[in-house]
Amino acid sequence: MISLEGIVKYFHKGSVNEVFALDNIDLQIDEGDFVTVIGSNGAGKSTLLNCIAGVFFPDSGKIIINQQDVTGWPEYKRAKLISRVFQDPLLGTCPSATIEQNMALASLRGKRRGLGRGVKGRDRDKFREELRHLGLGLDARLLDKVGLLSGGQRQALTMLMATMLKPDVLLLDEHIAALDPKTANQILQLTQEIIDQGKLTTLMITHNMNHAIRFGNRLIMLHQGSILLDLRGEEKANLTVRDLLAEFYKTQGEELALDSLLLG
């Protein structure tokens, strides 16, 4: 489904601020895989997702999605294959447009836009039905501006919008990190339901090791631009936070003992 071959990415190449963000990443993700991605700050998680999404191009390497070489495709062109949900709930929706207008924009993801009406009467019932599934009461607020919604409601709407048209790849960039714990759990649950229902190929970045273990069928740990751990199936199922922390601190050259004392 997704195949990354030798992805290398520098930032500010050739200047004093040069950062080596991705170091020759090779990664194969199969159809229907739900991969959780962890790693400390600066490990290259977001860079990896942004490379796949086409926000910037890798310095070398190849990105293949669904047998198509998309390495040279700009971001807007890759939208045909990829859906994204950002960390900032404000980034996924248009605040001054209504809920139905936002959904109509998303229903044309990667498609040609013409002079037909932006929001069509026949779509409205479909939108309302999909909103009802969220159970947030948004189905009665189709004409409300999205700027009036809370962060959690906006992120739920963004999840819905990202998956209305089934994407070949769903990218979640810490999409619950900016929410309060209760809302975060709701959105996470919704995420799981949507992914299960559509059998979506997903990459989800998270800072929460519990989530990384509990969700998905595969776990990747990045460190300094390389893949340090890649666990799936049984291996992943038997993983504990303690194991992960041990791996995590190995990379920092520290002993776990001290931290386990601190963490109780």
Partner: peptide, 28 residues
């Protein structure tokens, strides 16, 4: 009329949230 069309809605979105509309496949 034009701003109510599919293209028109994309124009509004470009002014409102360019990152979002790019991720929905519009060449800003």
């Amino acid at each position: 009329w034009f701003l109510g069309s599919e293209i028109g809605q994309a124009i509004l979105a470009v002014g409102d949230n360019p990152q979002m509309i790019r991720s929905l496949g519009v060449n800003t």
